[in-house]
């Protein structure tokens, strides 16, 4: 009897939550700025989500999961890269962190790398709202739930984040064309 209940629960988890695994990974990847770390943290967060799943009362499973992923990411950053949470990187620090690669020169002018570096240079609280809005297509209500902020502040947070992104992009336009390094684990899509 216990087993029947349990497998039902797991089946429900696999049906409702597991499909949002890409969303979880993408969000973690942008918060942590690394595919390898994102993979670890996503796995940890999914297992945690399963443990809390009985407390999930239906509704927006993606937002519920992303909230757990976000918590796991910030905890991870605090433990492993607290500097990410307190510093607003200038591009020189950021380039060191990103590393260099032989293929870099070939793709440096690439629009994607250019945008990726700009987005990664933003502080996490700006970066996360942009990723949730522009990549994940979340509504303000979902962003408020995921980032634990009042819905009234989502619009202004986004406005500030976009302004920052514009600034970084306009500052780096010249340099990107000249060929700046890209991160090693930017990886294939």
């Amino acid at each position: 009897m216990a087993d029947v209940l349990e497998s039902g629960e797991r089946e429900r988890f696999e049906r409702l939550v597991m499909p949002h695994q890409d969303a979880a990974f993408n969000f973690a990847r942008w918060l942590l700025r690394s595919r390898a770390d994102a993979e670890d943290v996503t796995q940890e967060a999914m297992v945690r989500a399963y443990r809390f799943f009985r407390g999930f009362r239906g509704g927006d499973a993606r937002a519920w999961l992303l909230q757990i992923v976000r918590n796991a990411c910030y905890t991870w950053l605090e433990k492993n890269r607290a500097v990410d949470l307190t510093t607003e990187f200038d591009e020189s620090i950021h380039q060191q962190h990103s590393g260099n690669s032989p293929e870099a020169a070939a793709v440096a002018a690439n629009e994607r790398d250019h945008l990726m570096r700009a987005l990664e240079s933003l502080p996490p609280r700006s970066r996360e709202v942009l990723v949730l809005r522009e990549l994940e297509g979340c509504s303000y209500k979902e962003i408020a739930a995921i980032a634990s902020v009042p819905i009234g502040t989502v619009m202004s947070t986004l406005a500030r984040a976009r302004e920052r992104l514009q600034q970084v992009l306009s500052r780096s336009t010249g340099r990107a064309a000249a060929g700046t390094p890209v991160r090693r684990d930017g990886g294939a899509l």
Binding site: D22, F25, R29, R35, M46, L115, L165, L189
Partner: peptide, 26 residues
């Protein structure tokens, strides 16, 4: 800005095999 963000294919999908790992750990 939005158009370029969306056309740059910045979305990164989970690596193959992650879902198996998660299921196993659960």
């Amino acid at each position: 800005l939005r158009a370029s963000l969306q056309s740059a294919q910045l979305y990164e999908r989970a690596p193959a095999g992650l879902s198996t790992k998660i299921k196993r750990q659960i």
